[in-house]
Amino acid sequence: MNSVGDGQLTFQFSAAERVEQILSQYPDKRSATLPLLHLAQEQVGYLTSAAIETVAELVEVHPGEIMDTVSFYTMFYTKPKGRNHIQVCQTLSCSLNGADSLVDHISEKYKIAPGEVSQDGKISLVKVECLGSCDTAPVIRINDSYYEGMTVEKFDKIVESF
């Protein structure tokens, strides 16, 4: 059994017309899987079993096949992440330019190891692979935005607003 840990038993897309629009863009239903999963994740913050089943129904495949897809991609989460989801690139150029000390700093600051969510649910931290912004290494991504040329000081400044 996979571990989709959630207490949410039902799911309904809040943007019904967006769902329709997504489905109408593709020649077949199943191609709408990724965009629908993105949409569902935006709504809840992560993919609940109910959301997976809803997407499965919409694209007319077995929920297992959706889980197959979900579990393949690193950007799909089946567990809640923090409201500020910090993704630190750890691949070569970032690593050469100090990504490791950034991770250590964030870990220390929020008392969470990579892969964990802070107690108050505010922050989660993950190490990710190449974000494709190597010229501005080290790079982090918080939720959907890139923060480039990071330093410990810069980071602290950014998170002041959280």
Partner: peptide, 21 residues
């Protein structure tokens, strides 16, 4: 996409576009 280097490979990309791994 949703986070998978291999989807830059054209056949992996096509499968992904089809909604699969």
């Amino acid at each position: 996409g949703a986070g998978a280097y291999i989807c830059g490979e054209e056949m992996g990309l096509i499968e992904s576009l089809e909604g699969k791994r």
